[in-house]
């Protein structure tokens, strides 16, 4: 099962590449904040998968921290991001 979990984790990491491409291209800041959301969720999933191993169980706490702080960035973004980027 270790292999399977690592395989899925690897697959999810590869899913970050399209996200990165979108972050690079934009065109708007809205697109980029969406990428941040994707990375956050992917990060939680990858950490949980890695934490499936007995010796790495503490990684679930990292996932917990990711999860509880997930919205702070977005709240700050909505307050402070500049407005010139309407599509």
């Amino acid at each position: 099962m270790h292999e399977l979990r690592m395989g899925v984790a690897l697959f999810l990491l590869l899913m970050l590449l399209p996200g990165l491409a979108r972050a690079w291209r934009g065109p708007t800041l809205t697109d980029r904040i969406l990428v941040i959301q994707l990375f956050g969720t992917c990060g939680v999933a990858v950490l949980l998968l890695l934490g499936g191993d007995r010796e790495a169980a503490a990684l679930r706490n990292v996932a917990l921290v990711f999860a509880v702080l997930a919205a702070v960035t977005v709240i700050a973004f909505v307050r402070f991001a500049p407005s010139e980027d309407v599509r």
């Binding site: 990292v62 702080l69 702070v72 960035t73 700050a76 991001a81």
Partner: peptide, 21 residues
């Protein structure tokens, strides 16, 4: 894991918000 925890909490969570602010 300790560093990962701090990076998750301070690095990606709060620093991002701080830079945006």
């Amino acid at each position: 894991i300790d560093v990962a925890l701090v990076e998750a909490a301070v690095g990606s969570g709060l620093t991002g918000a701080l830079l945006l602010s």
